[in-house]
Amino acid sequence: MSTQADATPAPIAYVDGLAVYYGAMGHPAYQWTVNESAPLQALSKPLNECRVTLLTSGGMSLCSMPPFDPLARNDHRLDVIPSDAAGDDFQIHDAYYDHTDAETDLNCQFPIDRLRELAARQEIGSLAPRFWSGFMGRIYDRSKVLQESAPAFVAELHKDEVDLLIAVPA
């Protein structure tokens, strides 16, 4: 007997799956960051007045740039992607997810064309001049993220007068 619940698969349990996968290789259990609360900054203006940017951690770089290290560990590299970059001018190097479809159409994972359309339709106010690609691979040194790389990134967002960041991990 089929029910609606059967038709909707449960989300994949990545935390448990990764524990089994790495445990089998003899690695000690990884201590994930678990937060009980989160900050909230409400938008101060309507969406159609907001400046929006995108961040991908999917190992996507412009063809004119060096590739990301597909097996990167603790790589804090962060690339500027001009927000008018051509969607077919990217390379993807990241061994931690299947980017076959994103190579066919970048918008599967980094929807630069779709966001441009929403700006053209004035559903959002404007695009920031710069989109971003970084924080890919496995970054274990979380204190460096929290104290250095993320604050440096946020300073750049402020320079671009960004109101809203859409972030897409892979």
Partner: peptide, 29 residues
């Protein structure tokens, strides 16, 4: 693991006054 890193980045941005939304494919992460 990017889900964790990007989550941390969003928290830092938000605390510094920038609204963020994360588009996740790893619910538990």
């Amino acid at each position: 693991m990017d889900h964790q890193t990007v989550g941390l980045v969003c928290r830092v941005a938000e605390a510094a006054g920038i609204t963020t939304v994360c588009v996740s494919t790893g619910r538990d992460l």
